[in-house]
Every structure is written in C-alpha cells, then in structure tokens.
C-alpha cells in the first residue's frame, strides 16, 4: 500500500477568505448592477485556480475593474469596513500597462493573500485595479485613515514589493476626501 503524505492532498489554507469582484462599465445600468462577484477562495491552490482562469488586467477593456476583498467586505466606499478608510494609490502611465500593470497587480494579490503586512494585515480590506484609457490605477484599501502606524507600514512594504524606486513617492488618500474632491486630484494624508 502506498502511503501518501498529507502535503500532497491537503490544500494550503489562507489566513482569510477572499472574494474576487469584477466591474464592467455599462452606462445603461447602475454602478452596483455593474459589479459582480466572480468567486471566493480560502486556499493557496484555489487562489491560483481562479487567477489562472481569468483574463489578465491588461486584456480587460477600459472601464473595467478587478477587486479582491476580504469575504464580507464589498468593494465600495459605503461598506461599513471601508467608509472610514482610504487607499494607497499607484497611478500608472499609459506605457506601464504593457510593462508593469499585470506584474504590479499580481504582486498586490500576493501581498494580500500571503498576509505580507504582518499584524497590520488586519487593517487591509482589499485591493482594486482600475483599467482606464487615461491611465490605470492599482490601490490597496485599508480600514482606518487615522491609523498612521499601520498605514505607513503597509505603504513602505508595498512600495518595496512593487520595486518602486525610493525617490518616487506613493500617496495614501481617504475615501471621504476622494468622494468629496472638487478637482481631479485628492490630497494625500500620508506619503512614503
């Protein structure tokens, strides 16, 4: 009789259960009606089964988003866990869609499911990639824009993981400031 090690058949559980959402911009529908839950997973193996099955971000048409959020948190400002929060925002140039977009998004997903931010991972709600003709965006959303210690730790680690040069900065903006901004830019609460 062959003895099979549990390693070969037990999947590797993640700390959290995660949901992947897809948004497609159909102007005949409401914002919420354009948002759909693709799938939920809580193991390393099921994460890859999903990731390998879906289109890369760079193949999506303009106006689409992917969002990965902890199970039970909806990918919108209004959710109870998001409404006092904000995001570390990575804005990409048009050329970066070819060079960096898919790499940055995968790195972002790995940071989330791997709980890269240590104890501060509890502050993470999710991440979003926006495909836009004027420039794509990737962001990690956190729960509380007043939690300076957690936010700056997450920002520093995230910037390093993406390989963003030290001399370039990334900014953290509260969702309330983004929602009420008057111009095209939102003021940064934190910068790393």
């Amino acid at each position: 009789q062959e003895i099979v090690s549990p390693e070969s058949y037990i999947k590797h559980p993640l700390q959290n259960k995660w949901s992947l959402w897809f948004f497609k911009n159909d102007k005949t529908k409401t914002w919420q009606a354009n948002l759909c839950l693709i799938s939920t997973f809580d193991t390393v193996e099921d994460f890859w089964a999903l990731y390998n099955h879906i289109q890369l971000s760079s193949n999506l048409i303009s106006g689409c988003d992917y969002s990965l959020f902890k199970d039970g948190i909806e990918p919108m400002w209004e959710d109870e866990r998001n409404k006092r929060g904000g995001r570390w925002l990575i804005t990409l140039s048009k050329q970066q869609r070819r060079q960096d977009l898919d790499r940055f998004w995968l790195e972002t997903l790995l940071c989330l499911v791997g709980e890269t931010f240590d104890d501060y991972s509890d502050e993470v709600c999710g991440a979003v990639v926006n495909i836009r003709s004027k420039g794509d965006k990737i962001a990690i959303w956190t729960a509380d824009f007043d939690n300076r210690e957690a936010i700056t730790h997450i920002g520093r680690v995230y910037k390093e993981r993406l390989g963003i040069p030290i001399k370039m900065t990334i900014g953290y903006q509260s969702h309330s400031d983004t929602a009420t901004k008057s111009g095209s830019t939102t003021k940064n609460k934190f910068v790393v």
Partner: peptide, 20 residues
C-alpha cells in the same frame, strides 16, 4: 500567529493547482 506565505512560496503553487 498568522498564516503568512512569502511570494516565492505562493508562486511555487501557480501551476500545481491543475494537477491536484
């Protein structure tokens, strides 16, 4: 403690899912 996985460990599973 948390179930943390580093990037190389996670990447090692990318093409194993189909085999299990």
């Amino acid at each position: 403690g948390k179930r943390q996985y580093n990037r190389d460990f996670l990447l090692g599973f990318q093409f194993m899912a189909a085999c299990t």
